[in-house]
């Protein structure tokens, strides 16, 4: 594949390095001369100096023959411009954009940018996984489908302890496919009884999340 990466900061650089290793044709477009010099000294002639949001630069970069455009500059407005021009002007099917301000994620989605990566959100999700602030930890959210995969640990004094699953009044749109007890996975059924310290993985509609949190969490 021919992949154009807009932005030669750390994200762009390591991305290029990995993609080159996977034998893709890669080009980084970067404004800053110093960054260009460093990249070309390390990775060879795969960098072009210029403003990646400028249509003339895009043309020279061969945007119209690219299979994928990835915008990873530090400015969301630039990333949006790059992805939209790549799609609308150069007919690129797939674009990926980095989002710096998490609030912009839904705007990008409204504007038809297929894939977005919000570094801030990723780090927040990681923190949530390490140090849960709520009793429910988000593992994966499928927004279009309105479904989340969540995980919760049953507290030692939880009212659910000692009762079979079917007696807990779990909402209909919520399924518990996995319970992890002492590091071992159990596929639960209606008669399974939860113990304190069990980690419960649930698939739930986004609306039922808070109910599940109250039911299991009770922190």
């Amino acid at each position: 594949m021919y992949i154009i990466i807009a932005g030669g900061g750390k994200v762009g650089y390591y991305l290029a390095k990995t993609l080159l290793h996977d034998e893709h044709e890669v080009l980084i477009i970067e404004k800053d001369k110093r960054k260009c010099d460093i990249i070309s000294a390390e990775l060879g002639g795969i960098v072009m100096r210029g403003d990646a949001t400028d249509s003339i630069v895009m043309e020279e970069a061969g945007m119209s023959r690219a299979d994928l455009a990835i915008a990873v500059t530090g400015d969301d407005e630039d990333n949006l411009m790059i992805c939209q021009m790549a799609k609308k002007k150069f007919g690129i099917k797939r674009t990926i954009s980095r989002i710096n301000n998490p609030k912009n994620e839904h705007i990008f989605r409204l504007l038809g940018i297929d894939h977005t990566v919000s570094v801030t959100d990723l780090i927040l999700a990681q923190i949530e996984r390490e140090i849960p602030a709520h009793s429910l930890v988000h593992l994966l959210t499928l927004r279009e489908a309105g479904v989340s995969f969540v995980e919760a640990q049953v507290p030692e004094q939880s009212p659910v302890i000692g009762k079979p699953l079917r007696a807990l009044g779990v909402p209909g749109d919520c399924v518990i496919p996995l319970v992890i007890r002492n590091g071992k996975g159990i596929v639960p059924h209606g008669e399974t009884v939860l113990l304190g310290g069990d980690e419960v993985v649930a698939v739930t509609t986004i609306e039922d999340e808070s109910f599940l949190e109250r039911l299991l969490g009770a922190k």
Binding site: T53, D75, M81, Q84, I107, L110, L111
Partner: peptide, 16 residues
């Protein structure tokens, strides 16, 4: 003074 900011601001105004 930035094209990219203007385009994005306008799109937010229209779509959001």
């Amino acid at each position: 003074n930035g094209d990219n900011t203007n385009a994005m601001a306008a799109e937010i105004a229209k779509l959001v």
